[in-house]
Structure formats: C-alpha cells, structure tokens
Write a protein that binds this DNA or RNA. Structure first.
Lengths: 215, 215
DNA sequence: TGCAGTCCAGAACGATCGTTCGATAGATGT
DNA sequence: ACATCTATCGAACGATCGTTCTGGACTGCA
C-alpha cells in the first residue's frame, strides 16, 4: 500500500487537496463540533463522532485543540466570549436609560441569533464543565447579568422601573433572551426583525410596567 | 467469607436493616439520581456514580428501573409528567381570561419550584434522549405551550393582548418560568411568594402591555 | 540536498461505560 | 420442611471513551 495518504477519490478529484488547503480543517472541525454539541451535548458527543463526520482521524482534534475541552474552549472563544464586551459597548453609548436598555437588548438578541448554536451549547453545559465548574464561563454569565442589573437600576432611579427587585427583573430578561435561542428557527414565518420587535416590546413592558413613550 | 451480605457496620448498628426497610431504596435511588442528573446531566452521570453514592451495587438500579433510561423515566413520572394536567386544571376553572392566565402562571411557578431539579433535568436533556428524541417529552412541552397559546388567544380576543404573535408571547412566558428554576435558590433573601409576585407582574405587564386593573 | 516543522492517519492504551449473570440471604407461602 | 419470590451483591462482558504514540507525506528554508 503506497497511497495510504493520497485522497482516495481517484482521478476525478483535484490531484492535491489535503483538507487544510481546501478551506481550513480547523474551521470545519469547529463547525462540526458546534453542530454535534448543540444536538447531543458535550458529554454526548465523542471526538470520534466529530472526526468521523468529516472523515478524518481523531488526531487532528488533538493537533489543533489539545484535547476535547480545548475544542469546547475554542468554540466559546469566537462566539460567546465576546458577548459581555458587546453588551457593555451597547450600554456605554449615549442616550437616556430607556434608549440604552433597548440597545443592549437588541445587541443581545442579535448576538444570540448569530451564534445560536454556540450560545445554546454554552447555556446548557456551562455549569457542568471541568468538574469544579469553568471559571471563565461563570464570569461571562456574571458580566452579562451585571449589565442588565446596572441599566435597570439606572432606570429605577429615574422612576422608569417601579420594582425594587432589579436582579429578578434582569433574570427575567435573561430568561426571555436565552429561551429565544432555543425556539427560534431562521426559516420560520416571521422576519428576524419582527421577532426582535415582539420580544423587545414584551421585555420593555415587563420591566417598565407601563406603555413606553412613542420612542 | 460467610457474612458478605450482612450489614458491614457491626454490633453498634441495628441488627437488621437492609436499605429497603429503612426507607425504601427505590426512593433513595430516585433522589440521588435527581441530584446527580441535575448537577452533571444524564450523560455525565454513570449508574456507578449513583450506586456508589448510596453504597449499593449497580444491580439494584436494573432491578428497580430496568435500565438507565427507565430511571430517567421514573423521575419524570412523578414530577414533570403531571405538569400539563396541572396547568390545564388551572385553566379550566372559572373567572375571566386574565384571572385564569394568572392562575396558570402561578401553578406553573409553584410546580417548577416544587420539582426544581426534576424540571431542570427535563429541560436540559429532553431533546437529547433516546436517539430519535423522546416522544413523550416532546408532547409534554407541546401541551404546556398550548395552554399558554390558548389563554393568550382568548385574552387577545377580549382586547387584553395587543400583539398578534401569541406563540411568541407564550415562548417568552416559558422563558421566564423556565429560567426561574435555574436561578432560584430557596435559601435566598426573598420569600417564595415575593418572588412569585415579582415574576407574575413582569409577565403580565409583558403580555398585556399596559398596567392591569386593580385585579 | 538535507533538515526541521506542520499536518494527518492508524493503531493502541487504560479507563470507564451500560448491561448481564449467577449466587445468596431473607421473607413468604404451603 | 420445602419451594418460591424478592432484594441485593460482586464479578464479568463487550463497547466505547479520551488520549497517546509512531510514522509517513508534504512544505519551507538552509
């Protein structure tokens, strides 16, 4: 057997095309892992499942990511790890409190839609990782919560929010957003913007408790 | 070795106390499994973990539940499988639409608090079970959703709800309730009733979009 | 030409998984 | 007294898990 490493397809395929050149095996691994983790969970997905889906050896995963947790970490790196900064940026811009709250919420919804599977993975498995609980994952959750608690306290100081339990309000907002990425299907009947508007309205009325002004 | 099956504690323990008599091993297994499943997930918990926690052999799990999925099923049997009927009962009572909606929501919150870990297990793993997706679990989710969609459509017909997207509203409600059982800690500073009131208010304002009448 | 570095396959390792099986101690019924 | 049933143990099975290792093909640089 001389050609163990030659692409097995034969004459009709491009003569040289090791996975890497034809699009980056690393990215293919990430995408496949996201799909499988989202469908079966971290523990429910073996690295052999991922490798077999792409028709490659399991070694490539260790080559690119070190181990299985490294793969998980790499997924979070490009997706949810940027969420807190994104929300904090939306918060920092100008405008009155209500306007900024709305902007944060929209940014959150947009990020959840864009990294839907990644966020789902994160939310489902984040408190089951690395035995003692992944520290970084907990920090992400906390920073997101703090953004909401902060803006809600501002709104409360301005009399826009009547409830004193801003933390519970923040949890409720998180519940709506995090549930959204579990039920939303991009091929549904409504345009993404319509869904956003519906959710933003629900949350705004929920926290404010009275119809917001025309803007 | 003559005494392999005698309780190993010796003279200071009650002379006969096979686990079953001293409280029902079956119930102890269920409780232990709930704790571990909630903490590490279904796939992340081995039957040896469960057996070892109680200091018994793995065979007892097969004796009482047939296999690992039977254990999962038994947990759902006494907890979340009764949820749809409970909500439908709350819905069926008298009163106007808003009153019934509030009653359903309260029943849902109470059930989620009472079977907190069981509900958490159900929500996290329900779409990863038995390869093709557990049919019964999906049916539970659907019946709960239908209760909310139904009452919301009633409220919409009465002009209480302005949005036409009752399904999205229902999802939002489910998001709040299902997130509640992830963050709520019974030993927190607030009494359960205060938390309920806070959440009910948030949801009501969210779906109605205007301050509800005094009752 | 040689040599180091990168990329990948395939076999193998020990651990752990869900599950099965025979044995046994005690309770129950005849 | 004997047979049956229930509850439990401990050992074992094959499968699968995450991970490691060896080696080969290729690239880039001296």
């Amino acid at each position: 057997m001389l050609d163990t490493n030659i692409n097995q397809a034969g004459p009709d395929s491009a003569p040289e095309a090791t996975e890497r050149e034809r699009g980056g095996l690393r990215e293919e691994l990430l995408q496949t892992a996201v799909d499988l983790f989202a469908a079966r969970g971290f523990k429910g997905t073996s690295i052999r499942d991922i490798a077999k889906t792409l028709g490659v050896s399991v070694s490539v995963i260790y080559h690119y990511f070190g181990n299985k947790e490294g793969l998980w970490s790499a997924i979070l790196d490009y997706s949810v790890k940027g969420l807190p900064a994104r929300l904090e940026a939306a918060l920092a811009g100008g405008g009155h409190a209500l306007e900024r709250f709305r902007r944060v919420l929209r940014a959150h919804l947009a990020a959840s839609a864009h990294y839907q599977k990644e966020s789902k993975i994160f939310l489902i498995d984040y408190d089951r990782m690395s035995a003692a609980g992944d520290q970084a994952s907990k920090a992400i959750q906390k920073r997101v919560l703090d953004v909401y608690v902060g803006i809600l306290e501002e709104m409360q100081a301005e009399g826009l929010v009547k409830s004193a339990q801003t933390k519970i309000l923040a949890f409720n907002v998180l519940g709506v957003v995090n549930w959204y990425l579990r039920w939303y299907r991009p091929d549904g009947p409504l345009a993404p913007e319509e869904v956003y508007e519906e959710i933003v309205t629900f949350v705004l009325y929920g926290v404010i408790g009275t119809p917001p002004g025309r803007n």
